[in-house]
Every structure is written in C-alpha cells, then in structure tokens.
Write a protein that binds this DNA or RNA. Structure first.
Lengths: 153, 153
DNA sequence: TATTGTTATACTCTATAACTATA
DNA sequence: TATAGTTATAGAGTATAACAATA
C-alpha cells in the first residue's frame, strides 16, 4: 500500500483534486469545462478565438459552450469595437459570483485535505509543487496558465 | 509568479497531469473515461453494477460505455454463472495491450516532468504525495482506489 | 417484490465541414 | 482571399425513467 510509484501517486492525487472540483461544480450545475470557462474569464475578456486557444477547444465547441453559459446568464457576448467580425466574452455579475463561490468551496475542500499533513510537510509539498510547475513552465516556454483560480498577484 | 497558493498549485498540477494522460489516450482514440475503464479492468472482472460504483457513474451510463468499448473489441461481456441477471465485464487481449501502452507512455511523460526536479526533491515529493493519499484514504475509510495504473503490489 | 441490466430520451460536450460577415 | 464566428451534423458521454428478465 505504501508501494505507490511517484507517477501513480501523482495520478491518483490529480483524480482526487479534480474529482473534488467536479463535485463542487456539479452542486451548482456546472460541468468542469463550464467552470474552467468562468475561471478563465475572471481576469480576461477574450475573443471567441482566444477563448478557444485558452481552453484548448475548437472555435465551434466554444460557440456552444458560450451559448449555454449565456443562456444561463453567466457570460455575455460583447461586439468588438476594433474588428466587427469579433466578439468579446465576459463574465456577468452572476457569473462572477458563481465562479467565486465554486472556487471558495473547492479551496476549502483542498485545504481540508492538506490539513491531514503536518505543517512542515504541507509547506514542503507546496514549495515542491510550485517548483515543479515553474520548472515545467520554463522548460516549455509556457506561461503558468490559469485553471480555476487565477494567480492572485 | 512564485505567489501560487498551495491549492492553486495542486489544481494546476492536476490539470497538467490529467491533461497529459488525456493527450496520450487521445492518440489511441481513447477518452479519459474509456481509459479509466480499461485501467479499472486490469485487475478486476466486475459486474456492470460494480463497474458503475468503481467509475462513479450510473449503470445506464456504463451500459453505453461498455457497448462502445465492446464494439471496438477492447472488453467483453461474460454471463455470470452465479446470477443469471448479472454480466461480468473483462478486458480482451487487445484491451489489455492498449491499456498497457497508454499507461507506459503516460508514465514516461510524467517521469519526464518529474525529472525537472533534483533527485532529492523528487524523492521528497513522492513521499509527501504518498503520505497525503494514505492519510486521506484513512480519513475517509476508503481503499486507495485505482485510477489508471493499478497498485503494483 | 427487489435487483440487474438495457433501452428510450434528453442534454452537454466535442470536432469537422460548410457557411456568413467582415477584413 | 483570409479571418472570426456560427451553424449543421455526427458522435461520445451522462442521467432519469421505464422496462425485461431473474431472484
């Protein structure tokens, strides 16, 4: 039982963490991708095409995604002044509130799980995970993409 | 940029790890859930109902999931001898081969990411993650569920 | 009656291809 | 011509409800 591979451990931890997020999102009738949509929009107002890039989806998929979110009053389409072909997507107040609520509950869940570790271990884990992410971002010339929770600063 | 919350870091790491798995699975035309199906069957031959429990899905969802995997020759339905209402689901040789291949590539990917850390850090991370998973499993009276890769021993 | 599994139905999510409207 | 976005279409994945077969 303690014979977990590092890879196995990371995979299981990932399923645990994202499963937690998925469950919290579902309490608000949000799918994981809808939650990511709201998360990405917390500090951006991208075009449909930029949004597709951010979420790793085809533009046509984003059309439907935004349609459904808009129908629920969570996001709005704003005509671009610069290019009349373009549409900007932004959060509504309702969308912002919902995103914040899901994020808060998710943070509480993960914090509770992390509380199972002694303080020193938790600090070590945090710093190792950060280090790994930074190293990976650097190695791939990629900006540390936001997932649910945008970087706070 | 170094101001990542522990929770943020874990969320991003989880997206990174499962995104890697998803990409590898997609190379073999497997979705994440199909991959999990194959993974779960690597060391089990459950009934449909047990499978639903293992995957956290409704039994009707599992019917369709198994249908599609069976159509591709990855799994088979075996009538239960004990209960004529029941059906056991098992991997075919082809399914087993495919599962092993995806698992191997995924392990290589994650190993490569982990190689960005110094040896000592990697060992620390591994032990902290294992500790967290064990503590969580204990706190929830849950067996350390298999995700993609079944526990090796 | 209760349980196991499938089917019917409806919706979300996804991609490809064809289209419209701007550039 | 090229680009931004939508629409048409097809398929996977999911749940709820109704059903058939067996217990």
């Amino acid at each position: 039982m303690a014979s977990l591979t590092t890879v196995d451990g990371l995979a299981q931890l990932s399923f645990l963490v994202l499963g937690t997020l998925e469950r919290r999102a579902a309490e608000h009738d949000l799918s994981l991708i809808q939650t990511r949509l709201l998360g990405v929009l917390r500090d951006r107002r991208p075009t449909m095409l930029e949004l597709a890039k951010l979420l790793g989806l085809d533009k046509s998929s984003v059309s439907g995604l935004v349609d459904r979110a808009e129908r629920r009053g969570l996001v709005t389409r704003i005509p671009s002044a610069a290019d009349r072909r373009s549409v900007l997507v932004g959060l509504t107040e309702q969308g912002r509130t919902l995103a914040a609520e899901v994020a808060a509950r998710f943070e509480a869940d993960v914090t509770e799980i992390l509380a199972l570790l002694p303080d020193a271990d938790r600090r070590s884990l945090s710093s190792l995970v950060s280090g790994l992410l930074v190293a990976h971002a650097r190695a791939n010339g990629v900006d540390l993409f936001d997932t649910l929770v945008p970087s706070h600063e």
